[in-house]
Amino acid sequence: MELLISIMVGVMFATGTYLMLARNVLRFIFGLILISNAANLVIFVAGRLTAESPPLIPDGADFPAEVVANALPQALVLTAIVIGFGLFAFALTLVYRGYQSMGTLMSDQMRLAEPREEDQ
């Protein structure tokens, strides 16, 4: 499963990159979401996959009796998801606000701060 997920993550990175390179900033955001999902998966898979034994300590025991899933990457990914959401929400409002003031979603037409030389 690790190998196949690695390949799938590669596809997610590739499509995410392609989307982020688009002129339309909405596509850029789609790419951002894809890449953050892919990055979360990378962290998760790098900690190895363990099926059907969540990192919980059973009642009455001091530590997990059998092998349980690696808890460290899970903790990292959990916060990464929430932060990723914050980043996404900010980027979305930025795009929204940019569209309102500039009337376009094309990144190369958003040139309020740096007008093209021929326009100056």
Binding site: V82, F85, G86, A89, L92, T93
Partner: peptide, 16 residues
Amino acid sequence: VVFGSILTIVLALEEE
């Protein structure tokens, strides 16, 4: 923090 932050964004965007 999570509760308040998400509602801050969602409500502001919806009102907009």
